[in-house]
């Protein structure tokens, strides 16, 4: 057994806001490629393109129907821009690509363009909105009440993240439908800490979550923060 240091994924415990236009750790954007064809995929960290690839969507059933892309590791192999290099993915028609961030505090944007015979058509630009048919998942680790807003339709809901009182499973995501009008399918959702809430977009959406009422354990710790104080010596005499 080799001894290793424990490594804490600190951003997981710091993020209190999530936005589908800025993909961070704990968020996952799921884009569905409904039609066969060739697509250009760009992943940007800030303004810099860190990954460019061609996605070939094919009808062969042997192709995978899901590809996970960890954006935290893209562009980390070499320094500088990778925009000149092109990687390729092959996906089954109707399949999905899941863009997620496993660690770090970087923010990412994803865009997908369909390469047609005469023009390029932008199917996804996460910086502005998520198209209908896509999904946006957020895994919530800090307990408390989150306000969820679809800024495209001004719809709101709340998600309550509870502290578990006993054993539970984290791999049970809760799905929230976003209707064609952009409204959320329910006003309130409740999940356990570490579980995911998935927004299935029936219309174009941009989803923001914000922790508005932290659980007592977070507030209590804030109040209990110990400080080291040095007082300036009194020199009035």
């Amino acid at each position: 057994m080799t001894t290793q240091k424990a490594s804490l994924n600190r951003p997981v415990f710091k993020l209190q806001e999530f936005d589908s236009s800025n993909l961070t750790v704990l968020t996952t954007l799921i884009h569905r490629f409904a039609e066969a064809g060739s697509y250009d995929l760009f992943v940007r960290r800030g303004e810099r393109v860190v990954h460019r690839a061609t996605v070939n969507v094919v009808r062969e059933t042997c192709a995978p129907h899901q590809i996970d892309v960890d954006m935290a590791v893209l562009g980390s192999a070499e320094k500088g821009c990778e925009c000149g290099k092109r990687e390729g993915y092959t996906l089954r028609e109707g399949g999905v690509m899941c863009f997620f961030v496993s660690r770090g505090s970087a923010r990412f944007r994803v865009s997908v363009q369909q390469i047609g015979a005469k023009e390029k058509r932008t199917l996804l630009d996460s910086a502005s909105s998520i198209p209908a048919g896509d999904l946006f998942a957020v895994t919530l680790v800090l307990p408390g009440v989150y306000r969820v807003v679809n800024t495209e339709s001004k719809a709101e809901m709340t998600v309550e993240v509870e502290m578990p009182s006993g054993p539970y499973r984290m791999d049970q995501p809760t799905v929230v439908e976003i209707g064609r009008t952009g409204k959320f399918g329910s006003r309130r959702a409740s999940i356990m800490l570490g579980q995911s809430v998935v927004f299935r977009c029936g219309a174009q959406a941009r989803i923001r979550l914000e922790l508005v009422k932290p659980h007592d354990i977070l507030q209590k710790r804030e109040q209990e923060k110990r400080r080291f104080t040095i007082r300036k010596p009194d020199t009035s005499d």
């Binding site: 994924n9 997981v12 750790v25 799921i30 998942a137």
Partner: peptide
């Protein structure tokens, strides 16, 4: 669709 997991402690 299966969501990827994120490790908080590795």
């Amino acid at each position: 669709i299966c969501l990827p997991r994120v490790c908080v402690f590795s």
